Simulated scan of single mutants.
Amino acid sequence: MSMRATFLGTGGAVPTTARAPSAFLVNRDGERLLFDCGEGTQRQMMRFGTGFGISHLFVTHLHGDHILGIPGLIQTLDFNERDDALAIHGPPGSKRHLEKLVHAGGYQPGFHVSVHETQPGNVAYRADDYEVRAFETEHRTSSVGYSLVEDDRPGRFNREKAEELGVPVGPAFGRLHTGEDVELEDGTVIKSEQVVGEPRPGRKVVYTGDTRPLDSTIEIARDADLLVHDATFTDEESERATKTAHSTAREAARVARDADVRRFALTHISARYAANPKPLLEQARGVYKGEVFVAEDGQKVEIPYPDSDDE
């Protein structure tokens, strides 16, 4: 099952010609989940070919560079004759404000839009085989981050062992692999655990939104396949980072290192680094030794399973 992340907007509060305000999209085998919706997000979706078919929008907080794209996106979806419902999720206290954005200028969408508040620690959305959880962040307003966590997958099926035990090739293999025991013609019962290994972890993608670095984020991001963390400033602006409740690249890298994530993206890049974001990357690499990059608008990242098994 494929999973691809697209960085639609990687800039800070002030957009630049190269970086739009915050927006991050995950396409999980055709289901599109959007995290934050800064100004012009619908144009970024067209520009980078993600498609408009999002089912859920997860808002981290109510600052303009994370939400002012909502009216335009809603109306663009409507102009494209959308029929499917859209669910918008936000932090505590956001429902009334998000509803006003949906209906900005008195607009009435031709499709159903529901708005939900999510407390840190709660599940914002539960699907058949994954969920999106809200977690605590520290910004200057009510805020949350989001973690997309897949359920464990069945362990590997040992076909050779199954054949040795007399299981006929065919549907019985599939039943055993999904946890069902199988009775052979001679009455022998083959238990699933005899031929199926330990469950294998699914994938995890963590998106913090704007935040100071927190120990709780380390626990949420533990072993994540991709951590997308606020890295607005370099060390030289650490005092400003603290004052504005953002993170420096080095602080974000400590979170990535301590959480032992597999891949780490720096985002929400201040306009002061528009000409040269390399200092951010250099400071992050001084702490985190894994795969790290400064996210760029339009960048697409494939997210494989932890064991590189794409089944």
Rank of each mutant, 00 (worst) to 15 (best):
D36R: 15
R47M: 12
D83E: 14
L73S: 00
G69Y: 01
G53M: 00
H61N: 15
L86I: 07
H66C: 00
F48T: 03
L77N: 04
Q42R: 05
T50Y: 04
L77G: 01
D84S: 15
T76C: 01
L73R: 00
M45W: 05
L73T: 00
P92Q: 10
F79R: 14
I70C: 05
Q44I: 00
D83I: 08
G40F: 01
H63S: 10
F48D: 01
F48A: 00
T50F: 05
I54T: 02
P92A: 08
C37Y: 00
M46F: 08
L68S: 15
H66G: 03
N80R: 15
R82S: 11
L73H: 00
E81W: 08
F58L: 14
I74P: 06
P71A: 08
E39M: 08
G53N: 14
I74Q: 09
H56V: 10
M46K: 13
G30P: 09
D36L: 06
D65G: 10
I67F: 06
L73Y: 04
F35H: 11
D36I: 12
D36T: 14
Q75N: 04
F52E: 12
L62A: 02
Q75H: 03
L62G: 02
M46R: 13
L86A: 07
F52S: 05
I74H: 06
G30I: 11
I88P: 01
G53R: 07
